[in-house]
Nucleic acid binder design. Structure first.
Lengths: 201, 201
DNA sequence: GTCTATAAAGTGATAGAC
DNA sequence: GTCTATCACTTTATAGAC
């Protein structure tokens, strides 16, 4: 049994180091993009060594693939009103705390084709799903605008730090929520606009 | 006079080469970002030579500064309705044909800090200008959402090629126009929504 | 198992030949 | 004036010392 516990601590040590490297990779990829993040910088930030990083993850590309991922939002279903509610909730969460892995993928997508594919796949999957359930001939277009609005808000807040978007998620959603309501049911009138999102106070 | 005409052709030749290099730089920076665009690739695309590129522009950084720029939209002034109209027109144009220089700056901004500053400066200048003239306590926030929507639409169409955004600019504006109208006057009701933008057919 | 030393390739920039 | 050859440097990735 002594051997097992010994192996355990060693395996655990290795797993902890791997996790530290992965966390450092996520942060640096998210801050500086793919090309400007070097294996050396990741190793240093993780208190480790470039050689180990390569040994654990095989290549920079594979490390990035593990570090940057877009978690698919749960399936979105129901009436336009229900869809709007689910979209609003998902967007609120993205504004509150977008995970480092997503930010890494989002930043890298503009210079790293594989990251672009990752994000595109996640976004088009959700958009298609939404478009199928929305009324109106221009459902595909409207779900595209929903995607653009979401992308703009997330990028504007977390990556570009656009003026005015540093308000609380609740405040931002007070403005953005009604737009989503409008886009889901195809008219600016029937959803009562402003009331759709909760006020922060 | 013979010398003058001789100089002219030579100066012209040089200017033409410079223009070709600049055009190639814009296109490649816009397609692959700053880091992945090499001086060598630009020179080849322009049918020229890496040494000449350096000689003409001094450095890759200076070449990028000349190639990637965000033209400031004209000053935006007037009542909320007029502002909405000007914003709609500007956005329509950005959707119709965003110049290569802007696309280069937009793509590079996520990995190249100086490009980020370029875009941020242009966007915050316009947003501040708009926020000053909009009614409501949350004018700054609303102009921020306008910026995010614009950014999302331009990026979604030209850079990410989001599903559904490949419609004609007129069709896209049929959906996005009312949102801008709603954001400028602070309510989803008073602007008549859909009627704001022209239909394509 | 961990890390140092180095290899191989590609970059921006420069000097100097035509 | 135009372009070739090369420098100095940095990158990922590997081989081998401890």
């Amino acid at each position: 049994m002594r051997r097992l516990s010994w192996m355990n601590t060693r395996v655990e040590r290795r797993q902890r180091t791997e996790a530290r490297i992965l966390a450092a990779a996520r942060q640096l990829f998210g801050e500086h993009g793919y090309d400007r993040t070097t294996i050396r910088a990741i190793a240093t930030a993780a208190g480790s060594d470039p050689g180990l990083v390569m040994r654990y993850f095989g290549s920079k590309e594979k490390l990035f693939a593990q570090a940057a991922s877009i978690p698919a939002d749960g399936p979105i279903k129901g009436s336009p009103e229900q869809i709007a509610e689910q979209l609003t909730a998902a967007l609120t969460q993205k504004l509150t705390e977008e995970p480092a892995a997503s930010l890494a993928a989002l930043r890298a997508m503009f210079s790293h084709p594989e990251a672009a594919e990752e994000v595109r796949a996640a976004m088009t999957a959700q958009q298609r799903q939404i478009a199928e359930q929305l009324p109106g001939e221009d459902a595909v277009l409207r779900s595209g605008v929903i995607g653009a609005l979401t992308l703009g808000l997330v990028i504007g807040r977390h990556l570009v730090r656009l003026d005015g978007l540093d308000a609380s998620p609740g405040e931002v959603m007070t403005v953005a929520g009604p737009l989503i309501g409008e886009l889901t049911n195809g008219t600016g009138r029937s959803a009562d606009g402003r009331g759709q999102a909760r006020h922060p106070s």
